[in-house]
Nucleic acid binder design. Structure first.
Lengths: 223, 223
DNA sequence: TGGATCAACGGACAATTGTCCGCTTAGCAA
DNA sequence: TTGCTAAGCGGACAATTGTCCGTTGATCCA
């Protein structure tokens, strides 16, 4: 597909032991690359000015003062640009959730933890529904992937699975398939469903949260 | 957007009382229109020959021996063509489900009915996952809609809601929000999740069905 | 300092989607 | 039959996406 994008910082050989650059590492690096900054800055300005849909890749390249090819070398579609623009938010959000996995609040158990996390996730989805939706549609369109394969949802999936495993281990819920249940939870937490319920039935955030909790927390408690 | 497509069968004034043509009616009519038949036939042939993705609207028009404009007048995108190609299957399937709503099997109650229906829906999704997926992505791309707004999922939603209402009325499950629960069920039954579980974890149809039942049938039973 | 090398730049280009509009032709009245 | 009207056909066109390749400029060595 696209040629491998080598580390643009320096042409000298990599110091031993650092040859493999993780996806994460690459993305972090990108954010500091002034070239990438220009692109992201241009995109943000245009998005704010005209809305997400109205902005073309060509327009972003032009605004950033670079060619089409150069833009596509960094970002293979608009969804990837959105991903990067959301990166700070998602990173902070996921890190926060994962941090609590290491130092859980005492007292409420894994199921209580799940309950409060779902609330926070719904908050986050609500805040970023539109961008997340665009990320998803670009992502699934080009690369034949489902939303579940997006890095953000992957990490969320792992997080939820861990909570479910803990709840099962401590006997708070019966032994269900934690992998499947976590994915199902992601499906229900997706911006898609949120936006639909809101638009179609005028559901509030509280109603949606309650519905999810009834299914995935209360519903799982031992009979 | 596109000019209203009047009933192509006759130019004479409509008989009184039949002026409003339902979406349903329009679609039924289309299927019989030889012009539309040609398009669907061409599309089917090309799809079989080259796969869904590889076929362009232009190619379909060319194969059908008509112009681009004429093609777009009938079908605003590839997803709509797929919808129509699947129409017979979905119609038969939904009619079957809805029929049982009127004449339910005695003995198992609404919850048992829900259980068996979910099994049948998963079967159907499995059979048509690829086409349904394409329908969804085209649909959501152009018209800013979520998968839940597609006629097929709408009807499925209504069906599931009715079963949930009955189960709640007969005391088999607690009084949950049937509308939300039905939509959540759709989200979990979507081809997206099915394909992901299958591809990523090699899940079988039985495992997926079991996971759904655990959440939406067993999980809802009174505590 | 000068030349060789090569990564990466960016614009031109092909492919696709969806719209628009001039022309054809079917249907009707005289 | 002839002329009128309008439905709708279909190709040309604009817009967008994503790729390819000729060119540029930085780095390194002599």
């Amino acid at each position: 597909m696209k040629p491998i994008d080598p580390n643009p910082v320096s042409n000298t050989a990599n110091p031993p032991g650092t040859t493999t650059v993780t996806e994460q590492g690459k993305a972090e690096k990108n954010t500091q690359d002034p070239y990438v900054r220009r692109i992201l800055e241009a995109a943000r300005e245009l998005f704010i000015a005209s809305g997400l849909e109205a902005v073309s890749m060509h327009a972003i390249a032009k605004r950033a003062g670079i060619g089409q090819g150069s833009l596509y070398r960094r970002f293979s579609d608009k969804g990837e640009i959105c991903s990067m623009l959301l990166r700070d938010s998602t990173e902070r959000f996921l890190t926060g959730l994962e941090h609590e996995l290491v130092f859980p609040e005492a007292g409420s158990g894994a199921l209580g933890h799940l309950r409060s996390s779902i609330g926070r996730i719904v908050d986050f989805i609500e805040q970023h529904a539109e961008l997340l939706q665009l990320i998803k549609s670009e992502f699934t369109g080009k690369k034949q992937l489902t939303q579940f394969e997006h890095p953000f949802f992957r990490r969320l999936n792992e997080f939820l699975k861990e909570l479910l495993v803990r709840a099962a281990a401590s006997g708070e819920i019966p032994a269900i398939d934690p992998q499947f249940t976590a994915t199902a939870l992601i499906a229900v937490l997706s911006p898609d469903l949120y936006l639909f319920q809101q638009k179609q039935y005028g559901s509030t955030k509280e109603q949606i949260t309650a519905g999810i909790l009834a299914l995935f927390v209360d519903g799982l408690q031992p009979l």
